[in-house]
Design a protein around this nucleic acid. Structure first.
Lengths: 217, 217
DNA sequence: CCGCCCCCCGCTATTTTTGGGGAGTGGAAA
DNA sequence: TTTCCACTCCCCAAAAATAGCGGGGGGCGG
């Protein structure tokens, strides 16, 4: 994969191309053309929690130019300065890629140039980048099958109802009332949902159901 | 949008193109070239809970040929027969599109032909279909901005830590221990996060933090 | 400088949730 | 047909979360 991404970088004539996987446990995996120093630094400092590219793409539908992200905040600006120092370009374009169970990856192109040149580049290449991002993601999953086939046991309709209402802030009594069942029955649903999700408590179960896309609030 | 999708259908020379948004709350929205009768029937019967295209794409990363879905089960086969009766093609290719918070849409091409012809068609057009699916989804969201997620007030770093660990399933004692603060202090963070998020309880706060992308678990 | 927010700590009392049990129905799949 | 699984209901004791009160120190921007 490393050779592929380097070839793609040369093809697009950008400074960097990076594929970066972030999973629900906070594990990271990726390959790309950033320097090893920067990658190590990034992981060591746990920048994934700070990086506006991650944060921004996580709550966005569409590919995004880094210029449109929120770079305010002292820590963020320090991070940005450090990134540029380590050779990350001042421009960037990141494509969020999502899979089942909240699986999430980014495909990023980064370069050093002025705004206008970058805009032109993106306008010209965004379609190809989108296709390649998805194709690359597919290949990456083929090579790392462990990441994909996380057993996504479906919740039963009643369990979905229960989780959804809990995620909406109702307590058990209110949820039971909404569903017109006894609180005891509701508890069985919550417990079985928790078991299916491998969660330690209700909050955990709701969090997992949300990040796996099993419920929507 | 309706005119656009009809033009696209004619361009690809397939029987149907459909864009179908669905979330686990059961809300649906879409446009496409299926007959109104079938659409009404589909909604009325709540087929979204049965449809192997929905179920299958929901747990899959990549676009999928309908042939590879699981059509076993009595109700499913009845559904399939009924769909064909209403004019849906015997072949189909569906592209899952995901957004933040488990938001989920499908872009589907369907046609009546034999397996081989369909395979050739897909091989030839899958790239274009992927691009168009994403582009169409973007346009659809522009017209329906309500569906896009809201951006929200930032949490403090400590609040993010607290929410994150709670979302990972730890209880307050464990979280306090992880953060090396007293449980009483932790409680203040949780409460302030809850206030900022307008949440009724901890589970609600974690759910909101997650779905607003303020924390990543 | 002052106000605001972030960071940290303490107490008590009440309400809610959780973790163990157990039991019976009906429907769908193998 | 038999075996699952979803769905419904029940009890009790222990643990966890919530609501209310109080305190102090530090940094940053108007």
């Amino acid at each position: 994969m490393q050779a592929v991404i380097e070839a793609l970088r040369d093809h697009f004539r950008v400074d960097h191309l990076v594929y970066h996987w972030v999973d629900s446990a906070g594990d990271q995996y990726g390959c790309g053309t950033y320097s090893d120093d920067w990658r190590d630094r990034y992981i060591e400092q746990n920048y994934v929690r700070l990086d506006p590219v991650i944060i921004g793409c996580y709550s966005r539908f569409h590919p995004v130019d880094w210029k449109r992200l929120d770079w305010s905040g002292k820590a963020v600006r320090a991070f940005q300065a450090e990134a540029i120092e380590y050779g990350v370009g001042n421009q960037g374009y990141s494509i969020p890629i999502r899979g089942p169970n909240g699986q999430f990856a980014l495909f990023t192109a980064s370069h050093n140039c002025d705004d206008q040149a970058w805009t032109v580049f993106i306008e010209k290449n965004r379609r190809d980048l989108l296709l390649i991002a998805h194709e690359f993601n597919r290949k990456a999953l083929e090579f790392e099958p462990d990441r994909a086939p996380e057993v996504a046991r479906q919740l039963s309709p009643r369990e979905i109802d229960a989780m959804t209402l809990l995620a909406m802030g109702y307590n058990r009594a209110q949820v039971a009332d909404s569903l017109s069942i006894s609180e005891h029955t509701l508890r069985v649903y919550i417990e079985s949902a928790r078991a299916k999700l491998g969660a330690m408590n209700t909050t955990h179960a709701v969090a997992r159901a949300l990040s796996r896309g099993l419920i929507v609030v």
